[in-house]
């Protein structure tokens, strides 16, 4: 059963997820950084099919609105931390 799930059912489900999903754009750059199906579920958002490393982030709003906010995604910059040896 596990093999069937992995070899047959999962790819079929993932194909539907890919078709029904939408491109994920970086909040900061507008670049496409992945593709996923976002489903509201019991007060959460399920992200289906996205294998990217994404940071959730609300979009800045040039016009103040009280009824709508946009939640998007971005990515961390590449790690570039200094050498900080233990004192």
């Amino acid at each position: 059963m596990n093999k069937l799930k992995l070899k047959v059912i999962r790819p079929v489900v993932m194909w539907f997820v890919h078709v029904l999903g939408s491109d994920i754009r970086d909040v900061q750059t507008g670049q496409v950084i992945g593709r996923a199906l976002l489903v509201p579920w019991r007060g959460r958002i399920l992200m289906l099919g996205c294998g990217m490393v994404l940071v959730p982030k609300f979009f800045p709003q040039p016009r103040l609105t009280f009824w709508k906010r946009e939640l998007g995604f971005t990515r961390h910059p590449a790690p570039d931390y200094p050498h900080e040896p233990r004192a």
Binding site: M47, C50, M52, V53, L54, V55, P56, F73, R75, H76, P77, A78, P79, H83
Partner: peptide
């Protein structure tokens, strides 16, 4: 790179969907 360690596919992943 003035680095102590070099690694492949190095990402920062805290606070992410990873």
């Amino acid at each position: 790179e003035r680095a102590d360690v070099l690694a492949h596919h190095l990402y920062r992943v805290d606070g992410t969907s990873f």
